[in-house]
Every structure is written in C-alpha cells, then in structure tokens.
Computed example of a mutant assay.
Amino acid sequence: MDQSGAKLLPFYLVIDVSVSMSSSGKLDAANAIMPAIVDALAQNPILSDKVRFGLIDFSDHAEVRLPLCDLLDPKLALPALAVRGGTSYGAAFTTLRHEIEANVAQLKADQYVVHRPAVWFISDGEPTDDQSSWRAAFADLTSSKVYPNFIPCGVDMANTTVLGSLIHPSNGPKQMALYMMEQGFDPAAAITGIAEILISSMIQSGYSLAGGNTGTILPSKSNLPPGIQQFDPADFV
C-alpha cells in the first residue's frame, strides 16, 4: 500500500499482567485502558490517520496481544487481559524491540513516514528476572536505530528508582518522564489516572503531528490526575 509519505506516530502499551495484578481491582482497570483509548480516538477522528496502537502484556513471558493497528478499524476486536506468572521486564523489552523493528520496517516499506514510537510501560511491582538480563534487554531496546520514547509508569508495589532508570531519553530537549502512584493511593484508580495521562499525550502528540511538528508531548505537571506524581530524569541524579 503506497501511502506517499503519510505520517504516522506509533504508540505501544506494555502492561504487567503478573499475578499481583489480580488484587485491588488492578486488572479491571487495566482492561479498561484500551476501550478508553478507542473512545478518545473516536472523539478525535482526525487522529486515526496519524496514530497507530499496539498492546503487549508480560509476566514470565511477553505476548503481543494487539499488533500495531488503527484502533478505529470496525473489524477490530480488543483482547482481554488475564493474569499469569511473574514479572519479566527482560521479556517485555525484548518482545517490544522485535515488534517495533518489524513494524517500522513494514510501515516504511508501505511508504509511511514513521515518527519515533512512544511506549507506555505500566507495572505494579519489581522485576522478577535477573537484573543484568533485563538491563541488557533494555539497553538493546534503547540503542536500536528505531528506539522508542519510553515512559515508565508504576502503581502499588512498583519501585520508583527502578522505573526511574527506564526513562528514555533521559536528557536533551525531548526527555521523557516517570509517572508513579502516590503512596497510599488506590492502585486501580492510579491505573485509570495513568490511562488519562496516556490519552492526553496521544491526543496532544497526534494533533502536533497533524500540525507539522514532531515528538511525543507529555501533559504538564499541573494537569495530572489525582494520586499520580511525575518524576523527571533530574530527580534521579
């Protein structure tokens, strides 16, 4: 399909479905994210020509639950997330890298102009795989030619320092940020809040792209939902 230079911004939601996600309504909140994104796109149909979305879940292993697609495709059926196993960050990063590399190559072959992907990574706990292994997988992801803008998000028992180390880029004019649940806040409500931030970013970034600009736009700290705190890379220096 020759798209003659049409511009696209890929988004990926990478979400933890380890056993701990079965508590406190977290899984239900996670399953509400994709329908909320579809509703937001339906209310901003101009963005359907600019935005593509993919879904990956992870536990002991990672699965592509929704290949990169147009979420307003009437034939699309959204998958339901279910809990399983542990929390392998390495599996998530490796599967994500393979997906992004394959997707970008195909989109470029179809004559799209592909802007840097944005990844929203949501976890409710610490990684259960070996640190050297998952850090190597993250290094491979972020050193890839088509590396993404990586926005980590944590709820419940997620480790702020660990997730803060995943902000990428962490310097320069287009650095990303970490979104964390405030201590004592409801984890399910925090997931819903993170979904609101994701959707706001998607809409702002999509309209920016339509206006001829580039880059992932994050909402300002003053517009964050209750119970969510933003950390910038400088907070971890």
Rank of each mutant, 00 (worst) to 15 (best):
W134F: 13
D57H: 12
A40S: 15
N149K: 09
R116E: 10
A80G: 10
T95Y: 00
A82E: 15
L78G: 05
N44I: 08
D129T: 00
Y112N: 09
A29R: 09
F150L: 14
G85W: 10
V162N: 04
G125H: 08
Y147H: 14
G125R: 05
F58V: 05
D110P: 01
S132A: 14
L78C: 00
H115C: 05
A109S: 09
K26H: 13
V38N: 01
V114N: 03
P152T: 05
M34W: 12
A36E: 14
Y89W: 07
K145W: 06
D140G: 10
A158G: 01
D73V: 03
W134T: 04
A109H: 12
Y147T: 11
L27F: 05
L66Q: 14
D70L: 00
I46Q: 11
A158Q: 00
L71F: 11
D39W: 08
D57F: 00
E99R: 11
H115Q: 10
V64H: 01
T161G: 03
V162H: 07
T94F: 08
L76W: 04
S133F: 08
G125I: 04
D70P: 11
L71V: 11
L47C: 12
S144D: 15
I100H: 07
T160Y: 10
N159C: 07
G85E: 11
P117V: 02
L27D: 15
L41A: 02
I100S: 07
A77L: 08
Q111L: 07
E101G: 03
S88M: 07
T95R: 11
P74W: 00
G90Q: 01
K75L: 06
Q111V: 02
N31G: 15
D156C: 01
A91L: 05
A40P: 12
S143A: 14
G125V: 01
Y147K: 14
R84D: 13
P148W: 06
D60H: 00
